[in-house]
Design a protein around this nucleic acid. Structure first.
Lengths: 215, 215
DNA sequence: GTCTATAGAACGATAGAC
DNA sequence: GTCTATCGTTCTATAGAC
């Protein structure tokens, strides 16, 4: 059940992966998939019950690929905040949108089988970011003002929102600006890495949230 | 050419507004619009060349409405950073997605007539945020570590990305977490408003970033 | 396992009566 | 200006030969 040449099934899933990124779920028809894959009608419905299951298989593969890439990035031997910066400044094709989260606003997201791989992907990134930020906090390189979990949520939102801005303005620079802001803000709440670990608390300065806002 | 009772044209545009938010552009058919509006086929094609122009009219109205709302919010008589916080913590129906930017990943965004209202909406918000942040900077309540323009881009991206996260995790809390991070970060780079304007540099306390970051 | 042929419904748009 | 009727195409899916 494994050793086989490149079957039509694989060709169909590959085509679906490309088309889901290019056009999304609703705008991709089984005919499009077949045309690009070179397979006939019957092959698709032999291997899959229907369009939804093809998309689910394609999304699962895409999520696995992208999760592998981000795991490699976050597994790099660098200080935690450097890994966060590396993720934020990673090269991206802003106008193409996020390969997985571009489906966020389609009705397909109400189907668990389609939403799950997308959620797993962004969830994994957010968890990795949070891990780095907690590590930095423990090392004393992240200010105590900001909760690592909240900052991680902000950063993944900045990336996904950056894609949205780029598409809406049809300008990759719109995404760059947002991620620029993210890096600046990250720098503003951090201290140089590689410095001596803080045996004493972060100094009297630096308002914990209780002292800064009107709240 | 104005004084008329509620025409079918208006009913069609109203229906399109609702459906574009609910389902997006591709997934909304002229028949759906007609069914919801109570109009017949001919009415739509009498008033508009086709589906695209109906959507353009609907998006223009939606953008005007939403821009009016955000202008009211940002025009409120409050300190600049309070206005920014008010925008960030505004009530939102996270799972419905952004009324306009939900279309970001549709092929329709490649058509200027459809992209323009969406871009105008997010552009207006970003400009308002930037204005507030520049004002705060001038008043000395915003740290010099962060450029107002970059921070504004980050914040609008956080909101739009927050919608994406909520949809992808099917959990409004995902958006709340991102915006929580945004507020925390904003507090971290700001000093209390209402305090005396800074005739001297930000004081050693209350991190203006000079005391806190590597910058 | 792969193919061609085709079904039944919905798509965006048009025709033409009133 | 509004309506019903219908066009030709594409949609997702099935049938059935090879």
């Amino acid at each position: 059940m494994a050793r086989q040449g490149p079957s039509k099934r694989e060709a169909i899933v590959e085509a679906a992966k490309a088309l889901l990124w290019e056009r999304g779920y609703e705008a991709t028809s089984p005919r499009d998939v077949l045309a690009r894959s070179g397979a006939g009608q019957g092959s698709l419905y032999h291997h899959f019950p229907g369009k939804r299951e093809v998309a689910a298989a394609a999304l699962a593969e895409m999520a696995a690929e992208e999760i592998g890439a981000v795991d490699a990035l976050f597994g790099a031997p660098a200080p935690p905040l450097a890994r966060v910066r590396a993720y934020l400044t990673r090269e991206r094709e802003a106008l193409r949108g996020c390969r997985l989260a571009r489906l966020a606003n389609e009705a397909a997201m109400e189907e668990p089988a389609l939403r799950a791989p997308v959620a797993a992907y962004v969830g994994r990134i957010q968890a990795a970011l949070r891990g780095c930020l907690e590590e930095a906090r423990a090392a004393g390189t992240l200010a105590a003002t900001v909760e690592p979990g909240s900052l991680a949520a902000l950063l993944i939102a900045a990336v996904e929102g950056g894609y949205v801005l780029a598409r809406v303005h049809w300008d990759p620079g719109a995404m760059r600006a947002a991620l620029d802001g993210a890096v600046q803000v990250l720098d503003a709440v951090s201290r140089p890495e590689g410095a001596a670990p803080p045996s004493r608390p972060p100094a009297p300065a630096r308002g914990s949230a209780s002292g800064s806002g009107p709240a």
